[in-house]
């Protein structure tokens, strides 16, 4: 299991300090991150796979410093963005899934088999040759997930994966996430998504204000929002 250590992390954007001294060790299988808009939770998520490097402090993924070992960290930690449209980079579904394997010395047949396996796993096999822009919102989010899973990460960070989806597709994506074998860290406003999670961390104004098992952490969050 992946262990992520966040040590005294500060994140400064020009004059705005998005994170103010975060210290956490993440080693549970299911971790939720909640907080109001602008609380720093998405910034925090981007630190976990080296998309952002902290302006002060360090983030270690299984001992690897995200500032020095970006590629190695991203092999371990995948990232699914809020808007799948910005994550899908190829015009055809199967080509997009194969994109993550581009840097691997892999025979074409083996690459195709990996792509096919992950597409079938998420009900996208029938859409293999479809234009990616023509998929529904839910299908695009699953395609974005498939594109990450094909690279075989140990942990996946989701940044508000259901925010742009209708209820049916949000439920479908939630179910798929709950069935993942990989470690899952989710930034979300959808508190139902965090049922059965092991740990929930609440952010407010760049600080952790609660870090507990879901019912306690979420009641603290709900109270704070009233």
């Amino acid at each position: 299991m992946t262990t992520i250590e966040v040590r005294d992390v500060h994140q400064q954007f020009e004059t705005f300090e998005a994170l103010k001294g975060i210290d956490l060790t993440l080693n549970e299988k299911r971790i939720g991150i909640v907080g109001s808009n602008g609380s720093g939770k998405s910034t925090f998520a981007r630190l976990l796979n080296g998309l952002l490097v902290p302006t002060r402090g360090e983030v270690l993924v299984d001992g690897l410093d995200t500032a020095k070992n970006g590629k190695a960290v991203r092999r371990k930690v995948g990232f699914v963005f809020q808007n799948p449209d910005n994550q899908i980079v190829f015009p055809i579904v199967e080509e997009d899934v194969a994109f993550g394997l581009k840097g691997l010395k892999l025979p074409a047949a083996q690459r195709d088999a990996l792509v096919e396996e992950v597409l079938d796993r998420y009900g996208l096999g029938a859409f293999r040759y479809h234009p990616s822009h023509a998929l529904s919102g839910g299908q695009k989010q699953l395609l974005a997930l498939a594109g990450v899973l094909v690279t075989r990460p140990d942990c996946i960070v989701f940044d508000e994966p259901t925010t742009l989806l209708d209820l049916r597709n949000a439920r479908k994506v939630s179910r798929v996430i709950s069935e993942l074998e990989e470690t899952v860290i989710i930034v979300t406003h959808d508190l139902k998504l965090l049922e059965n999670f092991e740990r929930v961390i609440v952010f407010d104004q760049g600080k952790v204000i609660a870090d507990d098992e879901p019912s306690r952490a979420l009641s603290h969050y709900v109270e704070r929002m009233q």
């Binding site: 590629k71 991203r74 092999r75 963005f81 840097g103 594109g147 990460p153």
Partner: peptide, 21 residues
């Protein structure tokens, strides 16, 4: 955002097939 996504989705760089596969 797309540049970030490309960065996040390109973990391999002329690598051999890792054991994790």
């Amino acid at each position: 955002d797309v540049a970030d996504a490309i960065e996040a989705r390109s973990p391999y760089d002329d690598d051999e097939l890792p054991p994790r596969f």
